[in-house]
Write a protein that binds this DNA or RNA. Structure first.
Length: 151
DNA sequence: GCCAACGTTGGC
DNA sequence: GCCAACGTTGGC
């Protein structure tokens, strides 16, 4: 089993938005980056756990834990003209973009901030700490996972 | 609002 | 296949 970190701007989709969905479950849609697409399509498996990270907000940080409850399937927002993520190059016959379904497992009692993560020596190699890392989903090692849930 | 660090696009 | 220009992300 693998661990992941999933970024979302809370002004767009926050952990509370996920909590308010039926069954606390929602598709992680709208990814339009090939590296992340490959992870969604090929690597993220049912039962994997992920951190729900709030980005582009004050302060950024990890808000809770989600579980992958449905493995990669075509992202149908790509062929919805109404969607902000519409992409004419992706079609139902030949989908270019993929998504998974995530379910909220736990919202942390407090946000674990990026600042705290930066100052934890066990997490100095975490991808989220790397300058210029813009991938919206990144793998997390089990050591990093354990260190964070203790914080 | 700034800007570093990428990813993508498109001319050649 | 190279690479300059452009767009996007995201912390600050």
């Amino acid at each position: 089993m693998h661990y992941w970190l999933l970024k979302s701007e809370p002004s767009c989709f926050s952990i509370d938005d996920l909590a308010n969905r039926p069954n606390k479950t929602a598709p992680w849609d709208g990814v339009r980056n090939y590296q992340v697409r490959n992870m969604l399509r090929d690597e993220m498996k049912k039962g994997d756990l992920g951190f729900f990270y709030h980005s582009s907000c004050t302060p950024p940080g990890i808000a809770g834990i989600v579980e992958i409850v449905k493995e990669g399937y075509p992202d149908n927002t790509a062929w919805s003209l109404d969607s902000d993520h519409y992409d004419p190059k992706s079609t139902p016959d030949n989908p270019r973009w993929y998504m998974v379904d995530v379910k909220l497992i736990e919202k942390f009692p407090r946000l674990i901030t990026l600042d705290e993560i930066k100052h934890n020596p066990k997490l100095k190699n975490m991808l989220i700490n790397r300058k210029g890392n813009r991938l919206s989903i990144t793998p997390v090692t089990s050591e990093e996972w354990k260190a964070i849930i203790k914080m």
